[in-house]
Amino acid sequence: MGKNRVELPITLIKLLIHLCCLIPLVYVYWQAFNDELGADPVEAVIHFTGIGALNIFLVSLVISPLAKKLKQGKLLHVRRLVGLYAFTYAVFHLLNFLFFEVQFDMSLFVSEIFERPYITVGMIAFIILTALAITSPNVIKKYIGRRWQTLHNFTYLAGAAMVIHFYWSVKSEIIEPLVYITLLAVLLTFRKDRFKRWFK
């Protein structure tokens, strides 16, 4: 390393991540509770948290290629936080569906999960994200050992399930979901060496 690298202010970056993820969430719910979020606040919060989860998830996939490119290994310290926020938004997304869309009609909730393919893949993504979130603390990571990485490789499957969920949920306006599919594909190509190793 010839030149002096700038130390990244990791704490500051983390603080910014907290603010960027929390403030919009709180503000959206504040508006929705007060019926100030359009004509149908239910649809609005479902879409906001769903697309929010996907956006944050994709940001988490940018981090390691970016760290490599910038030779800033410390950047990896914020990856877990970003991933946990993607999970948080996904939790709100699912709870919105249960609380406000089907309004605690549990039989409808369960039948929708199994009968609507787009909701089924959405649930698959949610289950994976849940497993990743639960196993994210360092203590658990150490406890699980080598299999931790195997488990966390399911991140990519979760990403695929999320973009398919979006694509299948729209009526005809497929361009936006296609943009997300493309973005995910690009982010996965940064990892092609890893995927190649799996299949050797």
């Binding site: 919009p24 906001f48 769903g50 697309i51 929010g52 944050i56 936006e176 973005l183």
Partner: peptide, 16 residues
């Protein structure tokens, strides 16, 4: 907050 890096290619539709 959530997507400035990613979504600039699209405008409004499904997700609002």
């Amino acid at each position: 907050g959530a997507g400035s890096l990613l979504a600039s290619a699209t405008s409004s539709s499904h997700a609002g």
